[in-house]
């Protein structure tokens, strides 16, 4: 019975605490560096596109939202660094589930998912991103946390994984499969 009353005191106490609401859009919470947001197509340093139109991203996509139509690189004005380039590259952002499989599938690191998630449009057609839109530098509106703090470098992972051998050697039964 007394617990009932204690409940009321809890609620009353909370009345006088500062609210924890983060007011968007005045305050934008920084996302982690590997946050999967809007896609970005990349270029090499010399300006050639990395994407060769191999369509592996379209094959990997679980939502089937990527359309790739490849073409031969023109002799004058080569577009990509390979035998072919993506003449048409469209991603339907309305269908995309931002899983990142396209990023994983790409053999040339041509497509990555950036941090931008503010992608509202007022018509569905505007949500079909063409290659130009994906190649362009995005308006980086979403702040992200520091890479050094949150994105563990590869060497560190290897060091951690290297300890796995030590663990299994000293405690074979205890080591997880």
């Amino acid at each position: 019975m007394l617990d009932q009353v204690k409940g009321f005191s809890v609620t009353l106490r909370h009345l006088f605490r500062k609210p924890v609401t983060q007011e968007y859009p005045e305050y934008r919470r920084p996302v982690y560096p590997r946050f999967r947001g809007r896609h970005q197509l990349h270029r090499h340093e010399n300006g050639l596109e990395k994407c060769v139109g191999c369509s592996l991203c379209a094959a990997a996509c679980p939502a089937d939202c990527i359309r790739v139509v490849p073409a031969e690189n023109p002799v004058e004005g080569r577009v990509s660094a390979g035998e072919r380039y993506a003449r048409i590259y469209e991603i339907n952002m309305a269908r995309c589930i931002f899983c990142g499989y396209c990023e994983l599938a790409c053999p040339f690191d041509a497509i990555t998912l950036g941090n931008d998630f503010e992608l509202s449009e007022i018509s569905r057609d505007a949500l079909v991103y063409t290659k130009d839109m994906l190649l362009a530098k995005p308006e980086r509106r979403t702040p992200s946390k520091s890479v050094e703090l949150y994105d563990v470098p590869v060497q560190e992972m290897e060091r951690v994984l290297g300890m796995y051998d030590v663990i299994t050697a000293t405690n074979p039964e205890g080591a997880p499969e």
Partner: peptide
């Protein structure tokens, strides 16, 4: 109710 729930 918002303030009771520590939110705006």
């Amino acid at each position: 109710i918002g303030r009771f729930q520590q939110r705006l």
